[in-house]
Computed example of a mutant assay.
Amino acid sequence: MRALSLLMALCLPAAAMAQEVPCGGSFSGFVADLREEAISQGHDPAQVERFFAPVRQDPKVLERDRGQGIFQTPFVEFSRKLISQYRLDKGRELAERWDEVFDRIEHDYGIARGVLLAFWAFETDYGAFQGDFNTLNALVTLAHDCRRPEIFRPQIFAALKLYGHGDFDPAGTTGAWAGEIGQVQMLPRDILENGMDGDGDGHVLLKSSAPDALLSGAKMLAALGWRPGEPWLQEVVLPEGMDWSLTGLETELSVAEWERLGVQAREGRLDDARLPASILLPQGRGGPAFIAYPNFRVYFEWNQSFVYVMTAAYFATRLEGAPVYDAGNPDPGLSGAQMKALQQALAAKGYDVGGIDGILGAGTRAAVRDMQAKLGLPADGWPTVGLLERL
């Protein structure tokens, strides 16, 4: 999700616009510039001084920013690591404990409880581990770093506004290393825009209040385009002779069209025949297969990691009663070094793979699928050692 500890922007290469945002130089001078900008926005100078007084650069934040190897893990392995019996049982227990809150979310936003429970589980183990990085230090450190200052600089001024509301402590508010706060890990700007006082105490406190956190997360999903009452992901069985080039997020057909091609739900029936949908093979034609409905794409507005999005969306279906997926027998994937070599080879042929990072993201999958088709291989988007050798 966009505002979670697996922040979507952290998977993106540095944007050209980053060069237009002030960054770098001495850290103290950078903070002085932030103070001046805050005052120019109309904030009280004394309040600005109190807000920035405790800020310090945090080198551990930069270490974490540059070490995101978890995204290189294949879907089956990744999902098995994240989805435990404890998280399933705890999720169902919390669904009952906060039944009225989830009923309100389902009524007001049309979002199934499993969706928010999955994020709650993955981000903080249902609030148990919310991160111990000082949030202001993290935001200012990442804004000073010149990789993505356009992402983090606005978050600093949003945190200042929350401070003015009494909902942020510059010295004491802690969270994830990338500046997200609370039980579902939202960035200050998202809290400012979508924060909900779910327990009626007059404050939006995502660290201590489950109703605040859940309702705020629901409002944010709605703002990102969640379509009320519609599904997001469903496991399917594919026909013999499937045209693998039709798989992937780049291709959308109606559910009725997929049915005519022989796609069937593994359990129950596919949803509304009129809905557009894509067929996803997270580990190629030998692994599990899913149909992704329009709401699935909203997940990418919150987080850009394909493997994370697939796992969060799938876990949400499990919490709603879906069975364990059929893992199949996928071809072995590539190591991180092999994936980088593949990306370099694809980039040399003119493909936009989104950076040589060893992560099988959407750009790399699309390039792999196209190259497989050109080489006469099954175009399922799953890179293998055989493909790498051919390149």
Rank of each mutant, 00 (worst) to 15 (best):
L215K: 02
R266I: 09
K90G: 05
S245T: 00
G262Y: 08
V101C: 11
G200C: 03
E100G: 09
L7I: 13
H43P: 10
A159W: 09
V140T: 02
L377A: 05
H144Q: 07
R274Q: 09
D132N: 14
G202I: 07
E77H: 14
L238T: 00
P383Y: 02
K161I: 12
M242K: 00
L160E: 04
A273F: 06
L391R: 03
P45M: 09
P188N: 01
G284M: 05
V324Y: 09
L238E: 01
W244P: 00
G69I: 08
F102A: 04
V55P: 01
R35W: 03
R113C: 04
L117Y: 10
L375I: 04
W98G: 03
F133H: 11
L280C: 05
L214C: 00
P54N: 06
A210K: 00
V115K: 00
V298A: 02
A367C: 10
M8E: 14
S335Y: 12
G350E: 03
G386S: 08
Y299V: 02
T384I: 03
P22Y: 08
D243S: 09
R56Y: 03
S305M: 02
A273H: 13
L117E: 08
P378E: 11
E63V: 06
V353G: 02
T251S: 11
P45G: 07
L136Q: 08
T124V: 07
A313W: 05
Y308S: 12
V31Q: 12
M371K: 11
L160S: 11
A143G: 05
H107E: 14
R97P: 02
L375N: 00
D190T: 15
G131Q: 03
G24T: 13
Q155Y: 07
K340H: 05
A171T: 11
E96M: 15
I83C: 04
L187G: 03
V237H: 07
L136I: 06
G202H: 08
Y293S: 02
S208M: 04
L238G: 10
P323I: 12
I279R: 04
V263C: 06
E180P: 14
Y314R: 13
N137C: 03
A46C: 11
D103Y: 10
A277H: 05
L391C: 07
D58L: 03
M220R: 15
E252R: 10
C23M: 06
Q283F: 04
G67Y: 12
M196W: 04
D199T: 01
G376T: 07
D271W: 12
G363N: 12
A327L: 05
R269G: 08
I356V: 13
Q264I: 09
R269Q: 09
D197E: 04
R64C: 14
T364C: 12
G91Y: 08
E250C: 07
S245M: 07
G67D: 15
A379R: 02
L360R: 02
P282Q: 06
A322F: 01
L142P: 14
L187N: 05
E93M: 13
V263M: 04
L346N: 10
T251A: 11
G69M: 07
G386N: 09
L342T: 01
A292E: 09
L206G: 10
G333Y: 09
